[in-house]
Design a protein around this nucleic acid. Structure first.
Lengths: 336, 336
DNA sequence: CTCCTTGATTAGAGCGCTCTAAGCTTGTAG
DNA sequence: CTACAAGCTTAGAGCGCTCTAATCAAGGAG
C-alpha cells in the first residue's frame, strides 16, 4: 500500500528526481545509460507517476469529465464507450457521472466534474439550464451531445433528427405507404427534430402527417398504438416510432390487435440500438453514428484545449436507415 | 478559464488561506461571521476546491477506479449506475475505463486507474490474470464483481449462479417439465456456476441434464437451438438459456421451427436485463440484484479504506426468479 | 592551454491544497 | 492586575510532481 514516489526511484537509480521526471515523460536529451537505469529502478519498485501530482505541477489536465443522464440507455452507453476509446488513445482518462435527468442532480454532478479541473467536459443530453452550461464553459471547454445550444462557448454534436425522420418517411413512401403516423418522443432529446422532420417530409409528399404524442419507452409505444387505432379509421399502414423501445412496444400492441408486422403495418424505429438488431425483433430503424459522434465530441474538446479554435462548432451528423424486417410494401388491404 | 484558487477567496474575504480551507471542509471552530464571509467570497468568485490538489495535500483520495469490460452489456451499465449512486452519496467520484475483454487492454486500463492513486478499484468481470489483480491489490483495495478469486487481499461480489440455475430448474420442474436443456455461456463470466447449478438441480430431481455449448449472444442462442432440435428427439420441453440475449435468440429459432413459446417450449433467461421486461418479449428470467451488488462492492471498498477490515469478504448474492410469459406448464404433447 | 559550445544533469521554486503547531483574543477566576 | 483556559486564526512545511535556470562535463576551435 505504500506507493513509491519519484524520489524513491531517483534514489534507487542514483540520479536526481528531475531526471526521473524527464524519463517518465520520455523527454529527449537523456543519455541511454541513465534512462535504462531509471526504467529499471521504476520497474523494480512498480512505480508509475502520480497523475494528480503531475496534473497539479504541470497545470494541465488529462481528465475528461463526462456526464450522462442515463447509462441504461444503450445509446449513451455506446457514446461513452466511444469517448473512452478516443480518450485512451490520446492518453486521457474519463471521470464519469450520472445526473438522472434531474436538473438539480445534474448540476451537482457537473460541479463535481469541474472540481477536477478537467481538460474538458462532455455532457450527454443534459437537462440543466443553459446558465449552468454557460458557467461550466467559463471553466473549461464544454461539448454537448444530443442537445443543441446557442452559446458561442460550447460545441455541439447532434444527429440530424429531421433528416433521420425524412429518411424513414422516404423509405415508407417508396414502399407505397401513404397513411403514416409518428409516435413522437414528447419532450425527450431529439424528439422535436424528428417530429419536425416527419411533418416536413410528409407534406413534401403531399401527405397528411399524423402525430400521436408518446414517449421513449415500450409501454408508451403500446399505449400510443391503442390510441392510434381507436382514433384513426382507416388506420395508418405504417408507423415511425420515436425510438426503438417505443417501436417494440408499438409492435406488441399491433400484434395484440391481430395486425401483422410488416404485412399489415410497417414499423420503423430510431437509434439502431442493440435491441433493433436482435433477430427476434429485426427492426428497421434509423441509425445514429454513435462512434463518430463520440469521436467528434472528443476532437472538438481537444481543439479547444489546444487553443486551435475559439468559434463554436455545430456537428449535425447524417443518420442512415437500416432496413430490416419490420417494414414492407403496403399491401393495400387497409386502404379505403 | 482562469480558475480562482483558495488564495483568491482568502484575499477577497480578508482571511487566511487556512481559514478558507477550514470552511470548505466545514470544520467546526470557525466563527459564523468568518464563515459567512468566506462562503460569500467563494460564491462571488465561483470557487470550488481543486479536488486533485486536495487529494495530494491530504494524502487521501475520493476517487474510485472502475473498470468495465463492456458498457454495452446492460448488466454492467446497471452496476456502474449503482456504483455511481453509492459514490455520489459518499462524496466519491468515479473514474471509468473499459478493457474490451482483452487482457492487455484491461491491464493498461487498470494501470491507468491506479495512476490516480484511487481510494479503491472495482473490476467488473475482468479477464486479466490473477497476478495483475494481486499487483493492483498491493496498491489499493480491490473488489471484483462477477469474478471469483482466492486472493486474500481482494473482495468479491458475485451472484450465486448455482442457486440461480437451480431456481430456474425448480420452476420448470414444478410446471411439469422433465426434459430440460441448458444453453450454456461457454467461458463467459458466471457461466460455469450456472452450468454446475443446472446439472446439480437436474440430478437432484433424478433428471438427465442436457447441456448444449453456446455463448451469451442471441445468434449463439439460435444456433444452439438448431443443434438441440437436430440432436435430441424427443426434444426438450424447456430451456434454460445462459443469459437473456441467448434466450431471445433461442426463442426466435424455436418459432422458426414452428414451436410456440411457452405452449410447446418454455424458455428461461438469466440476468433480467431491460430486454426481458419488454412486453414484446416478456421473458421469464433470473434476476441478479445489481443495485445491491454495486452497493456491497462500494461498501467493501470503504471498509478497507477505513481499515475496518483486513480479511477478504466474499459476497454471494441470492438471485431471484422473475416469472413472465415465456414459461408455462408442460403440455405433454411432446412427451414420449 | 584557454574559451566556447553543446548536451546532460540537477537544484529549487511552485502548483493548490491540508494540517500541525504556534499565536492571538477574549472571558473569567484568583 | 495577572494567569490561564478555551476558542479562533494563521504561518509554514510539505504532498508528488514539473519546469526554468543554473551547473557541469566533454570536446572542438583558436
Amino acid at each position: 500500500m505504500g506507493k513509491p514516489t519519484m524520489e524513491d526511484v531517483a534514489a534507487r537509480a542514483g540520479v536526481s528526481r528531475a531526471l526521473v521526471s524527464l524519463v517518465m515523460r520520455n523527454a529527449p536529451n537523456v543519455s541511454a545509460r541513465r534512462r535504462a537505469a531509471v526504467v529499471k529502478a521504476a520497474e523494480e519498485l512498480g512505480y508509475s507517476p502520480h497523475v494528480m501530482a503531475r496534473s497539479l505541477a504541470s497545470r494541465t489536465s488529462t481528465v475528461l469529465g463526462v456526464m450522462v443522464n442515463d447509462l441504461r440507455n444503450a445509446f449513451f452507453a455506446d457514446v461513452v464507450e466511444g469517448l473512452d476509446a478516443a480518450a485512451q488513445s490520446a492518453g486521457f482518462d474519463l471521470i464519469l457521472n450520472t445526473g438522472g435527468r434531474m436538473p438539480s442532480r445534474e448540476g451537482a454532478a457537473l460541479r463535481s466534474l469541474l472540481s477536477f479541473r478537467p481538460a474538458g467536459v462532455v455532457l450527454l443530453s443534459p437537462v440543466v439550464p443553459a446558465a449552468a452550461i454557460e458557467a461550466a464553459a467559463r471553466q473549461c471547454p464544454v461539448v454537448l451531445v444530443s442537445r443543441t445550444s446557442r452559446l458561442s462557448t460550447v460545441d455541439t454534436v447532434n444527429d440530424d433528427g429531421e433528416a433521420g425522420a425524412a429518411l424513414a418517411v422516404e423509405h415508407l413512401v417508396q414502399l407505397g405507404h401513404r397513411r403514416i403516423a409518428h409516435l413522437d418522443g414528447g419532450g425527450a432529446a431529439g424528439a422535436a427534430a424528428r417530429r419536425r422532420g416527419f411533418r416536413q417530409a410528409m407534406r413534401s409528399h403531399g401527405l397528411e402527417p399524423i402525430v400521436v404524442r408518446s414517449e421513449h419507452t415500450d409501454t408508451a409505444g403500446e399505449k400510443a398504438v391503442q390510441e392510434l387505432l381507436s382514433l384513426y379509421s382507416p388506420r395508418p399502414t405504417a408507423l415511425l416510432a420515436g425510438n426503438d423501445f417505443n417501436a417494440v412496444g408499438a409492435i406488441s400492441a399491433l400484434e395484440e390487435h391481430g395486425l401483422r408486422v410488416p404485412d399489415d403495418v410497417s414499423v420503423v424505429g430510431y437509434d439502431n440500438t442493440s435491441l433493433a438488431s436482435l433477430r427476434h425483433i429485426s427492426l428497421t430503424t434509423v441509425d445514429q453514428p454513435r462512434a463518430e459522434m463520440a469521436r467528434l465530441a472528443f476532437d472538438a474538446l481537444l481543439e479547444r484545449v489546444r487553443g486551435e479554435r475559439t468559434e463554436p462548432v455545430r456537428h449535425l451528423l447524417h443518420p442512415s436507415l437500416v432496413v430490416r424486417e419490420t417494414t414492407g410494401p403496403n399491401s393495400g388491404e387497409a386502404q379505403r
